[in-house]
Design a protein around this nucleic acid. Sequence first.
DNA 1: TTGGCTAACTAACGATCGTTAGCAAAGATA
DNA 2: TATCTTTGCTAACGATCGTTAGTTAGCCAA
Lengths: 194, 194
Amino acid sequence: MSVTQTERKLQITDTATTLFRQKGYAATSMRDLASAIGIEAASLYNHVRSKEELLHRICFGMAEAFFKARHQVESLHLAAPVKLRLAIEKHVEVITSHRDASAVFQHEWRHLSEPDLSVFISMRNEYEAYFSEIIRQGVAEGNFRATDEKLAVLSLLSSLNWLYDWYRPDGTLLPHEIAAHQAELFIYGINQTT
Amino acid sequence: MSVTQTERKLQITDTATTLFRQKGYAATSMRDLASAIGIEAASLYNHVRSKEELLHRICFGMAEAFFKARHQVESLHLAAPVKLRLAIEKHVEVITSHRDASAVFQHEWRHLSEPDLSVFISMRNEYEAYFSEIIRQGVAEGNFRATDEKLAVLSLLSSLNWLYDWYRPDGTLLPHEIAAHQAELFIYGINQTT
DNA sequence: TTGGCTAACTAACGATCGTTAGCAAAGATA
DNA sequence: TATCTTTGCTAACGATCGTTAGTTAGCCAA
C-alpha cells in the first residue's frame, strides 16, 4: 500500500476483502461489492481499474506486511531460538491484525493472472526460505535437532497461517500470547517433560 | 461413496475434483468439466443432478473417509501418545491418498448450501473434538503437558491438513514417514534434547 | 460566474453461467 | 424383431457476469 488512497477507495478495498473472504473471489460479483457499499456496480470503476486490481492489492499488501515483519527480525542478529520466537510473534501480529486479508492471501492468490501470479509465488517461496534459514541456523548452533527442515517449516507456517480461521479478537488469548504458545509448542512439543 | 457408480460418473467426479482443486469450485464451469472429459456440458446431466452434487459428493466422501479412520483408531484402547501417533498416521493416509479431494474438502465446502452446509460443519467440529479428546486423555495420563488444548489441536490439524499442498507421491518421504515425523515434531518439538 | 473535475447514475454490451428440452443412435431386453 | 433404456448431441432459456459509454449533479478554483 504505497500510494495514498481516497477514503472511498479504502472502503472499496476493505469491503472487497470481507466479501472475498466470505464468498471467495470468483463467487463475489462487482454488483455484490457495490451493493454492500451502497452504490452501483459501474460506479466502482471510478475508483478501481478492475476486479483483479482489488485482489492484487489485497494479496500484495499482505505480502508487503510479511516482508516488513521479516526485515524487522533479520535486522537483529539473534540466536535461532530467540529469532524464531520473534519471527513467530511478528507473523502472528500480521495475521491477527488483518484476518480477512490473510484468508484472501492464503486462498485466492491463484486467481491472479500472469505475471503477477509468478511474482506472488516467488515472494511466498522467499518468505518460506526465511523460516527455513532460521531452523537451519538453530541446527548449526546445536539448539535445534536435525529433522526434516522443510517439513518442520511447512508445519509451523501451516499452524500459523490457519490462525485467520479461528482467532477471535474478543477471545481470551491476545495475539502475543498465541504467538508464545505456538513457539513453545513448536520448540518443545506437547510431551510432559518433568 | 455409498452407492455403486457407473464408470462415467466416477470419471466425472474425479475430473471435477481435479478442476475444483486447480481453479476453485466457483471458477470451474460445467463446460470446463465437460470439455476436460470430452463431451458436451449438457451430457453431464445424464449422470449428475447438478454442479453442487459434485461438490457434495467430494466433501462428504472425504468426511466419510476421515470418520472411518477415526473409528479404526477409537476402536482400540490405547495410551494417548500411541493413539495420537495412530490418529496422525490415519489422517495422513487419507490426505495423501486423496490429495485433490483434500484440497477441495478444505477450501470449497463453504459453497455447499443449507442444510448440507450445517451438517458438514458439525461433522468437522466432531472430528476436531476427537483429536481434542486424545490430547485431554494424554494430559490426564500425565503424558502430555497441559497447554491450551484447542490451540494445540488446531495447530496439529493445520499442519496435517496443509499436506495436500506440498506432498508429492514421487517425493522422498512415504506417507507413513511423514506421519511419523509430524507426530515426533508435535510431541517433542524441534529443540535439541541431548 | 464560469469551467473543469469528481463521483455518482442509467443503460447496455457481449460473454458466459447452470440448466432444460427435444432428439438420435446404440445397446440391452423381451 | 420390437421396445426400452442409456447416453450422447444441438439448441436454447433466463440469469448473471465484468466492464464501458454517456450523462448529470455537485463542488472548487479562477
